[in-house]
Design a protein around this nucleic acid. Structure first.
Lengths: 330, 330
DNA sequence: CTGAAAGCGCTTACAG
DNA sequence: CTGAAAGCGCTTACAG
């Protein structure tokens, strides 16, 4: 590997000058700078990440902590993050957080603490209090995206409002037997699925309508939606409308309906959340969010936090997109 | 940050002994080792990645080079890679490769050469010859997954065979007017879409059947499949069967058929490639591959390549899964 | 089995 | 504007 000494020799300057010329920090005459750059180019010199990082304490590397689920959403956010960070010279380190206790501890107590990253973006991650302490015990700047927490600045859509908006849409169409499909856990006020359920309940309460049914164990997959849909539609008095906590869930509900010969939207209206690229093809009414843009904003926020020490709490936009999967009840 | 000196002081040994005790390299008495470990635990000491990497030349970090497309496939492969590497103490660095020339050069000439990673997994990446030279000019071990190349060891399904299998299935059902939807580029013999087209053509040639139609500009998205489907089905003599180069494409074709009131499979049979989790819900017949397992194998292969200097060329398994989207022609 | 010391390849006060 | 030198925090021959 060609090192800084090779460049210094070729440009006939000291390594200190090479470092200054290439990094842009410190004064270097234009003439010298050009000579150094030329030498570096000719030799194909690239600064060693480890050496530079050891000397400066900075890594030009941002970690992204992701749960293992909801592939479309996270990969879209990731590409948004990359599109902001990559042009600014930052690399991305990916940290998966599984459900396995030991694996999670290892990531939080070891992987994230090796000093490999300058900051962390935590995507919709739900951490136990002890895990949160682990994370906060390190001096690592952290930006959250999605889940609510007071522990670090977070970008998020207002999930309660999102759910309210979707549910109100069904109410306005005249529905009164409305079910919800999601993954809320009653003990936890802070996670995304539970906020969406609360918004659903709040919208119904405002209208003086009682929820027709809940399916709450459903993680955000098409399979879970399908199972939930079957359960709901087999009931004696099935709902005329379903608010699903994600588009994938909604797709599953639609498949379950189709299988039973229940027409959408004539017999059953379905609304989701996300703005998944497939939603258009399903004709799915949904509350769209914008994960790619969210990723860009998260990239900007972590750089700001690193540089200035603070970053604002940000509420992200969403938008009801009405398509053919919702209509008035029969 | 607590450093190796703090641990050495607390355990009353030298830093050399701390290093040996914690890394497991070199002889250390059991008693000393326990004392060092206890001290490290109490202090919450984690080895600095930069310092360790500078001293050893190893990073415990593997790069993954991904194109920006086909989210489901790549995120599934990624999680397979993580599931192999993470328990072995390796982190993952993500490198996006866009279509932008300047961005690509930067990744290949700079990002990948900072010495940040011990090896690279290149996912279905199609590189220009000059780009390939860039990549090979560095001493970085590389494993390919997907695209064929002689430049480094590659794990791949035999895409020609995959396409043959799918097409033969349609022929065996009795179809003779069969179209193909994909993204092949006639100039390039080595990429995945073109191999799939060749397999399609070969299977038809074996049966003495002429292709009904091609749509070749279609990247592997549901949108492209929808557009291709419309084009094919508007023709004077539409095909009775379609082989789509990916499941997402196939979904799009199915939506296009549904929109025109063309029944699947009575009026149109559709077969895809991938084994996408939605395929089951569409009742899509497909040639399934196993991206999560592919990721695990790629993780194992790159570690083997780093350790031994060689890794075998590997052909990955696939499997025709017959569902309701294919049947005999009317 | 253990320690003192050199060295990994940069960056950056400090002098000039 | 430029250079000599210390230092970033580890690892690892080399001695003992």
């Amino acid at each position: 590997m060609v090192g800084i000494d090779d460049v210094a020799r070729r440009a006939e300057v000291s390594t200190a000058t090479v470092s200054r010329a290439l990094s842009g920090r410190g004064r270097v005459s234009e003439k010298t700078r050009d000579r150094v750059r030329a030498a570096a180019d000719e030799l194909g010199y690239v600064v060693s990440a480890a050496a530079s990082s050891l000397a400066t304490g900075r890594t030009s590397n941002i970690g992204v902590l992701v749960p293992l689920t909801d592939m479309w959403f996270f990969s879209t956010v990731l590409s948004g993050i990359a599109s902001h960070l990559s042009p600014r010279g930052f690399d991305i380190a990916l940290y998966h957080l599984s459900d396995r206790e030991a694996q999670r501890r290892h990531v939080l107590e070891t992987s994230l603490r090796r000093g490999r990253i300058d900051g962390l973006i935590a995507l919709s991650v739900k951490l136990e209090p002890a895990e949160l302490d682990d994370l906060l015990a390190s001096p690592l700047p952290v930006i959250g995206l999605g889940a609510r927490t007071d522990a670090f600045p977070t970008l998020r859509i207002d999930d309660v409002e999102v759910a309210r908006r979707a549910t109100r849409h069904l109410l306005e169409l005249g529905h009164r037997r409305i079910a919800h499909v999601g993954q809320s856990t009653p003990e936890d006020d802070f996670d995304i699925p539970t906020s969406r359920r609360r918004g659903f309940e709040a919208a119904l309460a405002d209208a003086g309508v009682r929820p027709a049914a809940f399916v709450t164990g459903a993680d955000f997959t098409i399979e879970a939606g399908y199972r939930a849909g079957r359960t709901l539609l087999e009931a004696d008095e099935p709902p005329t409308a379903v608010f699903a906590a994600s588009d994938e869930l909604a797709f599953g509900v639609i498949f379950a309906a189709r299988e039973r010969g229940i027409r959408v939207p004539e017999d059953l209206s379905v609304v989701g959340v996300d703005g998944h690229p497939h939603a258009e093809f399903f004709g799915l009414t949904t509350v769209a969010q914008f994960p790619s843009e969210q990723g860009r904003l998260a990239g900007a926020a972590i750089l700001e936090l690193i540089e200035t020490g603070t970053a604002p709490e940000t509420t992200l936009p969403f938008e009801l997109v009405v398509r053919g999967s919702t209509g008035p009840p029969a």
